[in-house]
Computed example of a mutant assay.
Amino acid sequence: MNTKLVSFVLTILLSDFVNSATFENVTVLLTTQLGKLFLYGKPPIAAIFIPSSETLTDYINHQPLEVVTIRNQKIPKLVENSLSNLSNIVHLSIISSGVTELEPGTFKNVPKLDGLNLEGNLIKEIKNGVFTGLQVKFIYLNNNKISIIENHAFNNMTLTLISLNNNRISAWNTNWFLGSPVGSIYIAKNLLEEVPPHAFDFGLKFKRLNVPLTVWNVVLAQNRIKKVHKDAFKHVNGFGYLSLADNHLQELPPEVFHSVKNINTLDLTNNNLGHVSGVFDDININQLILLNNSLSCFPMEVFDISTISYVFVDGNPFTCVCVQFFD
């Protein structure tokens, strides 16, 4: 074999071997939370270059700034301890950096970490042990390729908000959130086909005696949902904002909101609902949005047994006289 060719191949192999650190030629931006510290009218920013390291610790911990942003870098995999022992960091973002895999144990000893942003990467799976037990309040995983979330992926956290928009999730599992007080869940633009029974039972652990169980924001818009189980919202007493817009619903079970007494906004836009008789009985709804469905009639008697402030019904093929006053 040609000596130069052998040398070239060995150089490539050795280069790949040497360039195997988690953070290889990566630039990290550090700043502080808005409103805390300003320099010349702006929050201070420090750019740190990491030539090669398995962890951020040695480059970050001696800095006084507590917000880390890594954007548009090349970090294929986050391994055990690669984001551990960050004693001062409050917010951590690794955005659009080609991350395909998160190993269990990536985050350890991050006592002040409040939020994570891993948007715009190539993550396919959330394994148990990556986030389990992590004491953060919010996680953004939008715009990845997530299709698998293991059974206890977000258990025993202080998590209150999770955003999984624009992924490939096809089934909802209430066990994901056991032991975590999640009040805002965003799973729009995925592949969900059903809202299963007892979908929000994870919240029962945090329900106090004689205090209603409320879920603040749930967005399941732009999925493929054909069915909402009659017990999907059982034990939930209220929603702030619930969106099932842009799905494939043809009907809702009359019992589906039986335990739900209050909804500020319920959005059912762009479905195929042909009737809603009995669905909204004995409930308080501020805004009921039924735009662009297949309703030929709206049950006006619902106003005698429920408190519904506003109903939006444009784009339905009404044929009955009961809704002529909408014209």
Rank of each mutant, 00 (worst) to 15 (best):
N156F: 03
E80Y: 06
K261D: 14
F326W: 15
F303C: 10
G129Y: 03
S96V: 09
F233A: 04
M1S: 15
D304I: 03
L288D: 01
L29I: 13
G120K: 00
V6R: 15
L295K: 03
N61G: 06
L178M: 08
H258G: 04
G35S: 11
G133M: 05
E193D: 12
K145C: 07
N292C: 08
I187N: 01
I308G: 03
R224G: 10
K234F: 03
K42N: 14
V313K: 04
V79I: 12
L209S: 14
N292G: 04
E301K: 11
H248L: 11
P197C: 13
N223A: 05
N190L: 07
F23K: 06
L78E: 04
I94V: 15
F17G: 11
K189C: 10
F131W: 05
Y40V: 08
T55G: 06
V302L: 03
G41N: 10
S243G: 10
T11F: 10
A221G: 14
I225R: 01
Q73D: 06
L220P: 07
I146G: 01
V9A: 09
Y140W: 15
I225W: 01
P44C: 14
Q135P: 01
T31Q: 09
S96C: 12
L295T: 00
E255Y: 08
G41R: 06
I139T: 02
L191W: 04
N72E: 12
F200A: 06
L14R: 07
F325E: 11
N156G: 03
N166T: 08
K227H: 10
I48E: 05
Q222F: 12
T31K: 06
L164Q: 01
L10G: 09
L178F: 02
N292H: 15
H235C: 13
I146D: 01
K124P: 00
S243V: 05
S147F: 06
N142M: 07
N144L: 02
N271M: 07
Q135M: 13
D327M: 05
I95A: 00
N143E: 10
N217R: 09
V211L: 08
H235D: 14
H62Y: 06
L118G: 00
N262L: 12
V6A: 12
S163L: 00
F257L: 13
A199M: 05
A47H: 14
M1W: 08
G133I: 01
L37Q: 15
G238R: 07
P76I: 02
V236L: 04
V26S: 02
P43Q: 13
F17H: 14
S52D: 11
D58L: 09
V260M: 06
I123C: 08
I50H: 03
F154D: 00
L39Y: 08
F107K: 01
P43K: 13
